[in-house]
Computed example of a mutant assay.
Amino acid sequence: MPRRVLSAALAALALSAALAGCVRNDAAAAGIDVAISDDTCAVSASTSPAGAVEFRLENTGTDVSEFEILAEDKLRIAGEKENVTPGQTVSYVAQLEPGTYFTGCKFQMVGAPIGLTEFTVTGEASTSGDQAAAGEAVTGYLAYVRSQVGELVPAVAALADAYATGDDETARSLFAAARVPYERIEPTAEAFGDLDPKIDYREVDAVAEGLDWTGFHRIEKDLWPPAAGDLNSDGADALAGWSPSTPEQRRQFADRLVADVAQLQELVTEDSFSVTLADISNGAIALLDEVAVGKISGEEDWWSHTDLSDFAANVDGASVAFELVRPLAADSDDGTELTTEISGRFDDLRALLAEHGSLEEGFTSYAEVDDASRKTLSDAVNALAEPLSRLTATVLAAQ
């Protein structure tokens, strides 16, 4: 997609599966056992009092694993313990406020968690100050970005393999889902120079900037090739200067995308990688801009018409960023009113998207969404964009 003048920010993990293993419903007063294997993640209790909650992790599997505690939206990460090696038993303590959470494990620390199970924290909220809340927001967002990239790596590998081997039917079925983790955190790659152009530029943008056209959308055009008379999103002849990739070229494009995504993972997992509160809140704004600029018009996924999937992923990422800084924003003057309005606008937008499908079940082809429905979606985006544009100033005013 085009390089935009956006704040260097980060954004947004949809995690869904079923957790294997039994769960006890009593409070965990003396610590909670978590039995980890290659395909199970059994938590010994489903409730705990608020405060410092100890999880005793035992990995009996064949490879490294990761334990995660997700917030109620199943997107934000409230706590995680990485690098639990085979045969290891380790204690992990998470500071948890009252509320509903979900626990899960990641085999080899990539992909979606093996499963999720509800975990309830009871009692009274702590009186932690703004500094602690700010630290929690940053820690939570870094974990979210890294987790999303962890899902992106295997999803892209599967897409690239199907595409390179000529299994177009499978590759088409994987295309939209493979893009979801990237679209949730898209400003991350934009913060790393030319990485986003390599991964996600459309043909018209690459040509305009004189760049080699690679990445998702190069693969997309091969998978949904244009016919004579078809036009690019800029109105030019779709066949001018383009021809279907040869098997050798397909392998090159597939390997390049896999390598670029691997580089993204390396960058976001470096110890020096961090974000600020402004990065987080501006990331929410940036992701909504992505919707307004490319998704509503249908320009983003011009050949596959999978724009609604990207749309929903951008909204997920923006929502996660907002929820992480929401406690800080609510502490400032008029912050409660603003955050309540933003939350309601997110709900409205999600409800409209749900009329066309879901990330889990798939969305209607955007080519089948009529102009009236597109305008309704656009109006909802604009209604959210206005209060969301005030989020960064409100968050920083609370510091």
Rank of each mutant, 00 (worst) to 15 (best):
T336L: 11
K81F: 14
T122G: 10
W224L: 08
L152M: 09
V93Q: 13
L75T: 14
T276R: 09
L338N: 05
G129T: 09
F253V: 15
F273P: 06
S37M: 00
A160Y: 02
L388W: 06
R250P: 01
Y201T: 08
P154R: 06
A125N: 10
T89P: 13
V84A: 04
G344N: 04
L13D: 15
P2Y: 13
T276K: 03
G123V: 05
Y366V: 07
V149A: 02
N83L: 13
W242L: 04
A262L: 09
P154Q: 00
A137E: 03
V315L: 08
F253K: 12
L152D: 04
L211H: 10
L152N: 06
E183M: 01
S243L: 06
K74C: 11
S91V: 11
A78H: 08
A45H: 11
Y163V: 00
L324C: 08
P49F: 07
R374D: 02
S173Q: 01
A284C: 06
I77L: 09
A178F: 02
D271V: 08
A162N: 00
A158G: 05
Y366H: 06
L15G: 14
A398F: 06
L257T: 02
L142E: 07
D167S: 02
A143N: 00
V43H: 01
S16N: 13
G362D: 01
E118R: 10
P86E: 05
L267D: 15
F346S: 01
F273K: 07
A164R: 00
V149F: 01
E118G: 12
V138Y: 03
D331R: 14
T47K: 12
S378E: 14
E337F: 07
P181M: 03
S319G: 14
V145Q: 01
S173G: 03
F55S: 07
H217N: 04
L223E: 08
R374E: 04
T214K: 01
V121M: 00
D39S: 12
K106H: 08
E190A: 06
I199K: 05
S48V: 10
V149C: 00
D230L: 09
V315Q: 02
V275Y: 08
S91G: 10
V207N: 06
H356M: 11
L391E: 01
D230H: 06
V110N: 12
P327L: 07
A28R: 09
